[in-house]
Design a protein around this nucleic acid. Structure first.
Lengths: 134, 134
DNA sequence: CATCTACTTAGCTCATCGGTTAAATAACCT
DNA sequence: AGGTTATTTAACCGATGAGCTAAGTAGATG
């Protein structure tokens, strides 16, 4: 019987070759040959890895003549991130910190009421998930 | 040969039983018996799952008399989140939006210069990774 | 058509995984 | 000491996974 989607995705990520392929694809769409180059591994092996990644929803593939260009597919990544979010409080300092909460509130407020900056700030009503990186 | 840490962690997460165990542990530290209850599975099976989770750095275990209480261990979760961060731009809208960037800058500024609120806002110099939810 | 390139499929091997039952260990409780 | 409770270890089994080689398919091109 087939695994649930999240399990397939985690299983696909549990291989360094596949993660390296994803890292390469993060730089942009490319062909199977191109993807295979860095690895000391047969082409069929790479083909299998790509199949696993595709089935896990981590990549999608097009057709261009005899090439099958691969690219990152967002959905499964998002799902993993979502699952991980249930545990974020265990390691993300700012997620728990009261100061963090206050900062978030302030940021939200600031976003709603544009400040002295003359730039017109468009803010969607939908959920705001912006991050602060220092 | 043993897998690299990230692979072990993803492999550990690629099983619904283990993820369910983690979900239970997110509610708080508990014993093996307690963890085993929801599952139609032998105790040794659960014990193995816990070993896998421990080896993956996702849980840690204490000793209290004959009990081996398990709890979430943050490090590996954090590592997974970090790896996932390399791909965040592929699915996180606000991560890419220019407005998002501006909002983040503003939030940061607001955090540095406390507003009219009388509360003393302590802000660590280290990286700020607060989130806006709403 | 024949051939070259870019892949995929088929079939095999070997290791690991998830589960089992039976037995061992460990700490508490008469 | 002897028993009960909590948990792990040992030994086994069937399924899956990652790799290989050899052969097959699909499309461009001489």
């Amino acid at each position: 019987m087939p695994l649930d989607p999240l399990s397939s995705t985690f299983a696909a990520l549990a291989d360094p070759t596949r993660r390296a392929i994803l890292a390469r694809l993060a730089l942009g769409e490319t062909s199977v040959m191109e993807l295979a180059k860095p690895f000391d591994m047969s082409l069929p092996a790479i083909s299998k890895h790509l199949k696993v990644l595709e089935h896990a929803g981590l990549i999608s593939r097009g057709r261009e003549a005899q090439w099958r260009p691969c690219r990152i597919a967002p959905a499964s990544f998002k799902q993993v991130d979502g699952w991980l979010g249930n545990f974020r409080r265990f390691w993300d300092e700012s997620f728990n910190r009261l100061d963090g909460l206050l900062e978030e509130m302030k940021a939200e407020e600031a976003a709603k009421a544009p400040p002295r900056s003359n730039r017109k700030v468009r803010v969607k009503k939908e959920k705001q998930r912006g991050r602060m990186r220092g």
